[in-house]
Design a protein around this nucleic acid. Structure first.
Length: 500
RNA sequence: GUGGCUAUAGUGUAGUGGUAACACAAGACUCUGUGGAAGUCUUAUCACGGGUUCGAAUCCCGUUAGCCACCCCA
């Protein structure tokens, strides 16, 4: 196990446990004792230790800069591309997802957080964005606005899965939808957005594309596929044997070696596309070529949600990995994927991702029937979603530098009751003048405050003490030279402008 | 949902049967108006529960959590 992993592991145990106690399970036992026994059992009070739920993480200040970075880039870019921001509730009617995401999908069947609320309504925490977007589109009559409607949103989603890296129970996506256009150019524009987005972030990615066709071509392809696999059924893994009946397209996604061999020679959906779908797909690709978007055709790309039609795509990170260097056992370990620490540049060799649809950073596609099925009004549409946690993980993995936050260059140190109180107002004045000033008003000792100023790395420390309060002056201390000057408070702003 | 590995101060680690060590971080003090130096102290009954043993961080079982693979997906 790598250092990195251990680190994560331990972060979960940040909580310092008080002596001789703990764990909620014990609380439960105690409760039961009270219920079951007539005579009250006197138990030592077990202290409750707060803990986040499994698969749900806090975004600590240290992480915050990555989030700001990713979200800001996404929002700026989405606005450039003409997407309007929308926010919808986290909670929706359960049927919405059953009818859109699909009853038979794993997401709805097994992973949805669902419950009956106090008003006896069947509700669910959204496991994905598209249904909510479509619901909002229908509910607010957006079809009567000028089409297409381009929506952008960001927020938490919930799926009850077993957590793993890049897989949380509460996770976040950035989501874009284009509703009301069947034009291939819309597909191309969304994919172009993906390309640009990752370019702006600095992440190297591969864009994989396929077409699933409309329901008609899919029917044809489905039977072709079933025919092909039927005779080879015994060579399929048990999961795929089940898929053969329920959802044969998903076999194409299988990673079992035996199945993979069979998949290579399986019929490809491109060959089964009807004329319309085929020409649509070709036009999408032509648009992409025109826009100089590099993509890879992946005939075996199938997406997990029921509503997809025609164009589907996924964004996979291109990671740099070591090509085996036998003598070095450490490197060999890394090759086995045990260690994901980045390696020195001279030892890296670029390798395209071997397994598609693993750890996709984003994915999406067209869903031409969904709006119609929910509203009765045929409305072609498409969308894309990006996993924010995965993007951040990739930023770290690819060692991408995040532009620094606006670090304060000034520290205000105060000494004594009077100065401390005055500082509150002084900081406010400085802020209004556009200066970001660090402080620690809670500390009394000047030494401690200077120590902190030093640690933060400010250029200048302002010192306000009893003496200065009565003289209406303030001390400017240059942190690198240690030189000090006493300045009239009235001239302070002017002097600061000169020096910062 | 299935399988495997792991769990020691805030962080990173040492400690493989004889009651916890080191580094860094943080806080306090030496020093109640001057930082980048030094020193001292503080911060862990070794995830939780049980078992084996004279004795458990160490061995065994269970639980929980994390990681990895499957599954699923962003």
């Amino acid at each position: 196990m790598t250092k990195k992993k251990n680190k994560n592991n331990k972060k979960k145990h940040l909580i310092k446990r008080p002596k001789k106690i703990q764990v909620r399970r014990e609380n439960k036992i105690n409760n039961n004792q009270f219920q079951d026994n007539a005579a009250p059992v006197i138990v030592q009070h077990k202290k409750y230790l707060p803990k986040s739920l499994r698969g749900m993480e806090d975004i600590l200040p240290e992480e915050g800069k990555y989030w700001d970075f990713v979200l800001q880039k996404a929002q700026d870019l989405a606005e450039d591309y003409g997407f309007k921001k929308i926010e919808t509730p986290v909670l929706e009617e359960r049927v919405l997802f059953e009818k859109s995401t699909g009853m038979t999908t794993e997401v709805v069947e097994k992973q949805m957080y669902q419950f009956t609320d106090r008003g006896q309504n069947q509700v669910a925490l959204r496991p994905e964005f598209t249904p909510s977007m479509v619901r909002a589109y229908i509910e607010h009559g957006m079809f009567s606005l000028s089409q297409p409607i381009k929506l952008f949103c960001f927020g938490p989603l919930f799926r009850y899965e077993r957590p793993q890296s890049g897989r949380l129970r509460q996770f976040h996506q950035i989501n874009l939808e284009v509703l009301g256009s069947d034009k291939p150019v819309s597909d191309a524009q969304v994919i172009l957005f993906c390309k640009t987005f990752f370019e702006v972030l600095g992440i190297k990615v591969s864009i994989q594309i396929n077409s699933l066709g409309c329901s008609e071509c899919r029917k044809v392809y489905r039977s072709k596929l079933i025919n092909y696999f039927k005779s080879k059924r015994n060579r399929l893994c048990p999961d795929c044997q089940k898929r053969l009946i329920r959802n044969p397209l998903r076999i194409l996604d299988c990673k079992q070696e035996g199945c993979k061999d069979l998949i290579t020679d399986a019929p490809q959906i491109v060959d089964s596309l009807c004329e319309n779908c085929h020409s649509h797909f070709v036009k999408v690709l032509e648009c992409l070529d025109e826009a100089e978007v590099a993509y890879e055709l992946n005939p075996f790309l199938v997406r997990g949600l029921d509503y997809y039609t025609r164009t589907v795509f996924e964004i996979l990170p291109i990671r740099t990995e070591v090509v085996a260097i036998k003598k070095d056992s450490k490197l060999e370990e890394k090759k086995e994927g045990e260690n994901k620490e980045p390696l020195p540049a001279d030892k890296q060799v670029e390798v395209a991702p071997v397994i598609p649809s693993m750890s996709a950073l984003g994915g999406g596609g067209r869903y031409d029937n969904l709006v119609g099925e929910l509203s009765g009004r045929e409305t072609p549409a498409l969308g894309v979603a990006f996993g924010v946690e995965r993007i951040i993980e990739e930023l770290k993995y690819q060692n991408i530098r995040i532009s620094k936050e606006r670090a304060p260059k000034i520290f205000l140190a105060q000494l004594g009751e009077l100065a401390m109180r005055r500082s509150l107002k002084l900081l406010e004045d400085l802020r209004k003048e556009g200066f970001r000033v660090a402080e620690n008003l809670a500390k009394d000792s000047l030494r401690a405050q200077l120590e902190m100023a030093n640690k933060i790395g400010v250029k200048l420390t302002l010192i306000l003490g009893q003496q200065e309060m009565s003289d209406k002056t303030i001390i400017f201390r240059d942190m690198s030279s240690g030189n000090q000057e006493t300045i009239d408070q009235e001239k302070m702003i002017k002097e600061l402008r000169k020096r910062i």
